[in-house]
Design a protein around this nucleic acid. Structure first.
Lengths: 148, 148
DNA sequence: AAATAAGCCTATCGACTTAATCGACATTAC
DNA sequence: GTAATGTCGATTAAGTCGATAGGCTTATTT
């Protein structure tokens, strides 16, 4: 299960992607239209800013804009920022590898071999699906970036 | 990330599968050979028993046995018992569906469409991989039950 | 320059979950 | 009947999750 925070982050990014690119969108507007607690969204957008996905302007008429094309932001990237590694085991993460605390011999780990397949499958989907895929009206083909 | 408890459960089942099927294996033996806290393993095996994966005998010379062939116990089933639904969103679970709390229109949910692909991919792997796939020595072909 | 409107940032909260432990009880073998 | 074993509920300490609070900084407006 992905966290509520990750859902909020994705929805906020989709919201930003769908907004006119001319001027920044305010936190409160996103919060209102996506029904996200204002202060919580503040933290989320700050995270996304620190990771280079969005930029902000302060002061009156400030707000947020997307820093990249919606096609260039994947679900996988957002989930890693908010929820941490996608991998089912720490020793299978490409982006945040570390040994399982109780692991004696990684190469011989019986569980690891199976989960490696699961990790690849998940990454295959989430690192290909983008904010752009989630935009627009329901019926759109291409939305389901299936497994090839 | 799967829980420590789920890792223990899988390792315990593999241990049981690799033991001689003649007489029951004691909790303490599994705990020792797999390096799992004894009392914690007790709870885990009880869960697995309640779900019909293993059977137990009490009293002296008691212990646990597998109730099914290792080929007939999937990783997915074990994970669902210990960690709950595999699906990334509650509204995508086949075994424990329920609406997201804040969901207005499920069919139109932009996020859901993408995660549906991820859920299928994960299930595709974990509902095919079995305890038998994880048994035996490292090099074994077939261990990687890849995506087809 | 003061007032106001926005984002920035850190701390804190209560509820829940996780990993683990404890202790009393029930059952079986010998 | 005693020792060995599984059963089961309660408890704990630490961590996470979702959310809120409040002061700070920056920019605009008047």
């Amino acid at each position: 299960m992905i966290s509520q925070k990750a859902k909020y982050a994705l929805r906020a990014l989709i919201d930003l992607a769908e907004a006119s690119h001319d001027d920044p969108v305010q936190i409160s507007d996103i919060a209102a239209s996506q029904d996200i607690p204002r202060k919580f969204l503040e933290q989320i957008l700050l995270d996304l800013k620190h990771q280079g996905l969005v930029a902000s302007r302060r002061g009156k008429a400030g707000g947020y804009i997307l820093l990249r094309a919606p096609e260039a932001i994947t679900f996988g990237e957002v989930l890693r920022i908010i929820d941490g590694p996608l991998a089912p085991l720490p020793c299978l993460s490409k982006t945040a590898y570390h040994r399982c605390v109780d692991c004696k011999d990684e190469a011989a780990c019986q569980i690891r071999r199976v989960f490696a397949g699961a990790a690849d499958a998940t990454r295959g989907v989430l690192d290909k699906a983008t904010i752009a895929d989630a935009m627009g009206d329901a019926g759109r083909a291409g939305a389901a970036t299936v497994l090839a």
